[in-house]
């Protein structure tokens, strides 16, 4: 425990962690409700997931195994730096395997492998308020939430259809939680929205700059908003993964050579690697 002698466990002091845990518990008690909390300065800039980092710091224990993904990948600069931050400040074990992780911090994705009971998924949230883009006044959006006045959410979807012929919102697609609060699921692709609901894991959302925490306890009902004649669709690129051949995972389109050659690969690198290790091969696999 030499490392933790330099820092308090997981960087934050115990009083701050207690304050954040209280916000998390309140969030779990009122699924989808944005709980204000006193966000602390973290040794990384906003936009690097300081909200998620504070939530992770408050829930991590020495026995946890920690995974960080950014757009599905474990090896981006952002993911690597957050993982090493907790290796240094908490001394926790880390992993890239979704199945082995007990706490997973994520930016922009939900892992493909179904989560299980006992796991905690921590989302980094840039803008927690789903009504923000049409109603900038915080006093008014707070009232809309408290009075369940959510017509404005559908105005946004209406505008989408009138402009594009279909609901063009493909990230941060708004959901209604347990028939009560409308929630921004963070900028995950709408492909991931069905995984939000009825999930065995605990899902926690942290917005650092905006100082909000919200949560989905296990097995919560989460419904993506839509119109009767324009129903929600969890769409993805209509291809199998070039490396592992999966036809059900969310894909990134990557450029593979100077000639503009492209291929579609799983955005969840752990999922793709595991499938390849099991012998699955896509058409572009070496």
């Amino acid at each position: 425990m030499t490392r933790t002698s330099e820092y308090n466990f997981a960087y934050l002091d115990e009083q701050t962690k207690r304050m954040i845990r209280r916000a998390i518990l309140k969030g779990l008690a009122i699924p989808g409700y944005q709980v204000p909390f006193a966000s602390r300065e973290m040794p990384m800039p906003y936009g690097w997931g300081t909200g998620g980092v504070q939530v992770s710091a408050a829930v991590l224990t020495p026995d946890d195994r920690f995974k960080v993904i950014d757009q599905g990948a474990d090896d981006t600069t952002n993911a690597v730096s957050i993982r090493s931050f907790f290796e240094h400040t908490a001394g926790v074990a880390t992993t890239t395997a979704t199945a082995e992780a007990t706490v997973i911090q994520t930016r922009h994705r939900i892992p493909e492998l179904p989560l299980r009971e006992g796991q905690v998924l921590v989302y980094q949230v840039p803008i927690p308020e789903p009504l923000r883009f049409l109603e900038p006044r915080e006093s008014e959006t707070r009232k809309m939430h408290s009075l369940e006045e959510y017509g404005l959410m559908h105005v946004k979807l209406y505008e989408d259809i009138s402009r594009h012929g279909h609901i063009a919102t493909s990230y941060a697609y708004p959901v209604k939680v347990e028939g009560r609060y409308v929630m921004d699921p963070s900028p995950i692709p709408k492909f991931d929205n069905p995984k939000l609901g009825d999930c065995p894991a605990v899902q926690l959302f942290g917005a650092g700059r905006e100082q909000r925490i919200y949560a989905l306890p296990p097995y919560t009902q989460v419904v993506s908003l839509d119109f009767e004649d324009h129903p929600f669709e969890a769409s993805k690129a209509d291809h199998p993964c070039g490396l592992c051949g999966s036809d059900s995972s969310y894909l990134d389109e990557v450029i593979i050579d100077d000639a503009g050659g492209r291929m579609f690969v799983c955005s969840d690198t752990d999922y793709c690697d595991a499938r390849q290790a099991q012998g699955h091969r896509g058409k572009d696999a070496a």
């Binding site: 049409l134 017509g151 404005l152 105005v155 209406y158 505008e159 009138s162 009767e228």
Partner: peptide, 27 residues
């Protein structure tokens, strides 16, 4: 009015506020 929302969206807002969920009908 909501100046950032189309004329149709402005008229439709009250309908959606009271539960209209059929785009074609609202339009």
């Amino acid at each position: 009015l909501r100046m950032g929302v189309s004329a149709g969206g402005n008229v439709g807002e009250r309908l959606m506020a009271v539960g209209a969920r059929h785009y074609g009908d609202i339009r």
